[in-house]
Design a binder for these strands. Structure first.
Lengths: 208, 208
DNA sequence: ATGTCTATTGTACCTTGGTACAATATCCAG
DNA sequence: CTGGATATTGTACCAAGGTACAATAGACAT
């Protein structure tokens, strides 16, 4: 068994600070990788390994919050911990609203940093799981996806058939295919799976 | 149909500020209620109507963040928007981590305040729904709750029966009771319901 | 003691879900 | 045009869920 250490990405224009931060996290067993700009970080690519990002706010070029938004746009799901000397409340609050794990002020206390990294890595696991689920969902055809939304709404096969104007037999065929593709054996698992990536069930129009 | 306005609770030791804030939110159609201390607010009770809390940070006695924590302890689920002149980053960040909807600096821009209130009221609806679900869940007996956890794990009746060393018939009886009490007709609805209040399914020990 | 709540189980029956073994039709790319 | 993916449907059968109509037994409170 080869132990895989989570990788701590560090983006800070102050190279000295970044390197000392790298040494610090490496001292407790993490792998670290240092970048001096957001652009350099984005060019690296391959963000699929488990890890998190320690990110400065004020930087020449793309700032920390801008990188956060760009990552969201690109679908890069990596938990972010901001580290900054920039004592601006709205910036910190917005970063948190946008999903940052923490927003710490330099000089950062080791305890708080390590705690934040732990939290970030936990969140990273969830994000990776969601990514995997999204990947599975892409294997569904449009029709299957449509029927999936009815299934997780709790509709019976015959009701789905009625709404789509097809036979119950066909719904069963699709349903079976969906379950196989998503690797679940029960509706309960199916619903929990879809909840994790925010798929909304169809809403049955109430007849009067 | 009597229109029910959401109620905006305001807690600020600066009574003048509180009252002017009340006039402001009332001008756009909300009901407002002003308190000059956390204690006064807590004594009011009856926090079940739809609404949100505009809360100051620095106050004599119980501070805003302390009130936030106390409300959490007491199970009072009302969305909070902080309004403060206290430009402290860690305070703002912690408030957000603890579930605040927003953390705005005085003097607050009307746009941002109204936006924050809208967001808070949306969140309030979710919180109220969760409260209602928790209320329903309290009507379950211990045994029913136990079986519920197996059901939402996607287990078959016979598997549940096996684990609890009872007959499948008994599981069916409980299952039926659970569905009735929670007002759902499908496992899918049941799972979504429980997800909203964070009930975790039992984990099947994998046999080798 | 008597009644209520809870947990348990039984029988019988029907509905729904799942699947094995099929076929037909359309669309699209190589 | 030919193969593959997709959507559709059929038959038959079995497993699983749901329920109506029941009963038994223990715990607990009035």
């Amino acid at each position: 068994m080869s132990e895989i250490n989570p990788k701590i990405f560090i983006v800070d224009d102050d190279e000295k600070f970044g390197k000392s931060l790298a040494r610090l996290v490496e001292s407790i067993g993490f792998d670290a990788e240092v970048f001096t700009s957001s652009e350099e970080f984005l060019q690296r690519g391959a963000f699929d390994e488990p890890g998190c990002l320690l990110l400065d706010v004020r930087m020449p070029g793309t700032t920390g919050p801008q990188l956060q938004e760009e990552m969201k746009n690109r679908g890069i799901s990596m938990p972010i911990v901001f580290l900054t000397a920039h004592k601006d409340v709205p910036t910190g609050v917005k970063a948190m609203k946008d999903g940052a794990v923490d927003f710490l002020l330099k000089p950062v206390e080791e305890d708080k940093l390590f705690q934040a990294i732990d939290n970030a890595l936990d969140k990273g696991a969830d994000l990776q799981e969601a990514d995997q689920i999204r990947c599975l969902l892409k294997t569904l055809t449009e029709r299957e996806y449509e029927i999936l939304q009815w299934i997780i709404a709790g509709m019976l096969n015959k009701q789905i058939a009625w709404h789509l104007k097809i036979t119950e037999r066909t719904v069963k065929a699709h349903r079976s295919q969906i379950m196989h593709k998503l690797g679940v054996v029960s509706v309960a698992e199916l619903v929990r799976l879809t909840q994790k990536v925010g798929i909304s069930p169809v809403k049955e129009p109430v007849e009067s």
